[in-house]
Nucleic acid binder design. Sequence first.
DNA 1: TTGTAAGCGTTATCAG
DNA 2: CTGATAACGCTTACAA
Lengths: 325, 325
Amino acid sequence: MANIKEIAKLAGVSVSTVSRVLNNHPYVSEEKRTRVNETIKKLKYARNMNAVHLITGKTQNIAIMLPFINHAYFSILLEGIGKEALANHYRLIICQTGYDQDEEREVFEMLRNREIDGIIVLSTATPVEKIEEYCSYGPIVCCQQAGKRAFSSVYIDHARAFRSAMACLIDKGHRHIGFTVGRMDSPSTRARMSEYEKVLSELGEPLREEWILDGCLDMEEGAAIMKRLLDLSERPSAMLVTGDHVAAGLVWEARRLGISIPEELAVIGFDNQPIGKMIGLTTIDNRLYEMGAEAFRILFQCIENPDQESVQKELDFELIKRSSV
Amino acid sequence: MANIKEIAKLAGVSVSTVSRVLNNHPYVSEEKRTRVNETIKKLKYARNMNAVHLITGKTQNIAIMLPFINHAYFSILLEGIGKEALANHYRLIICQTGYDQDEEREVFEMLRNREIDGIIVLSTATPVEKIEEYCSYGPIVCCQQAGKRAFSSVYIDHARAFRSAMACLIDKGHRHIGFTVGRMDSPSTRARMSEYEKVLSELGEPLREEWILDGCLDMEEGAAIMKRLLDLSERPSAMLVTGDHVAAGLVWEARRLGISIPEELAVIGFDNQPIGKMIGLTTIDNRLYEMGAEAFRILFQCIENPDQESVQKELDFELIKRSSV
DNA sequence: TTGTAAGCGTTATCAG
DNA sequence: CTGATAACGCTTACAA
């Protein structure tokens, strides 16, 4: 494997000149430039990027921390990040953690180890204070609302989005509204929960624990919800379902069981995924693709300009009315 | 940022001893080991992995080449790869190429550049001969059948799988069978196409070009198929659909239009995705998760043992009968 | 069991 | 415009 020294010797120049050619520096005579390029081609020389990373202290790699790869929510975010990363010549290292805090710590350690230039956290089990400890080693952007922190964040206001979905249902006369969550212990769930309680008390409705359905992450669990609802002595007339995939599972099972939607059960999903569009699901579009792209842009800024303050950016959501309400 | 030299000085030992501690080498006295570990903790020292990568010539990173991140087929494969990679302390660099050959070349170049220890190709537009040129720089595993090559491959026999799906339909009396493909110019499509022609001629049925539907990659395109079928003067009584997601789109649209499945149209999907299970789709399970895991295992072996020959491994598929046929 | 010193392959600095 | 030479931070013979 040829190295820069051999190229220099064969081209009859110094290693610095070769390096300059490699990095498209000005101040290299056309003659030497072509001579260097020719020997590079002749020897099929390829730079050892690890040496470059060592000396420059940068790798053009960023880590994406997420619990599961195979999940629509994260796939859409990834797509948005990927588009921007590609355009700016950054690589994505996918770190699937399964919400294991030890695995998550390893990802943060990569920042200390200089293996990556930054981290985008899509969802995490690590407390914000712990995350802040790593901010001195490099930029971190979270796709979750976390208030003013040492790290940046991009998010939508889940409380407001939840309220606007509730309002849409209430408008149609619904007062018995249930909702599903992916996992109880997440910032967005806490935001929704507190908004739920507020809206219920404004309506003068009691809070029924059994109308809050936990552990709904995929389509099959969505289908299972329908059965859980049927077992209830009194069941809600409308459901807010986090994730159009999950909602699609519920809708499919409802049709199978002859429960008409929206007459017997109104459904609002979240995320505006393609499956929701196909089945005519009313949904809250929280712009996941855009959120991913924006997360990268902010991280990129922070990498370029290391002493920039952390930014918190709220993105708009949009209620998309279709036929499930 | 502390480095190994400072640790050595403060602990009163040599850098080699620190290095030995860092790498859990034997032949370090307990006393010095603890002394080193204490100063590491005190100085919050973290190794600069780029220096390690430079000297060892390895990075523990592998690239995954795929056209789109947000697609069920690739997500499942990724999940399988991710599980094994995690267990073996390898990182996945996701390279979304959009089937752009220039982007794909950049990924192969990463191998020359020593940025990665190997590549798993999930799907590519680059000709096999071109891929072989890169094999001297490091191991490559493809998840496509490619015959005996310088690179390894894991695959299922698409021709055989296709035939067994056809047989299942023929068994039920179908003779007018159409099929969808993601893109015409792929190895699996070519395999299916040639098998299709063979089976038709065995049946004594003519080949009807209009029953081969191109460009079907996602659910919405699946739904669109149904409309395309309705416009046909004579339409097939059964469809083979690559991807349960696509098939689900077709099935949904069929129900919406009042076309009963399987009576008026039988459908067989591929990949055995959760959505297929939910809607009762008969499908060919081609073990994507297992394929991903196996791809990593083979790559891992090749990394560990560089002068090992390339391996080609065929995986079994399975016809899963449900209610869409 | 420990330390010295020679790399690994670049880029950065500085003098010409 | 060009070239020596010193980093970058680590691992690994080799010698003790």
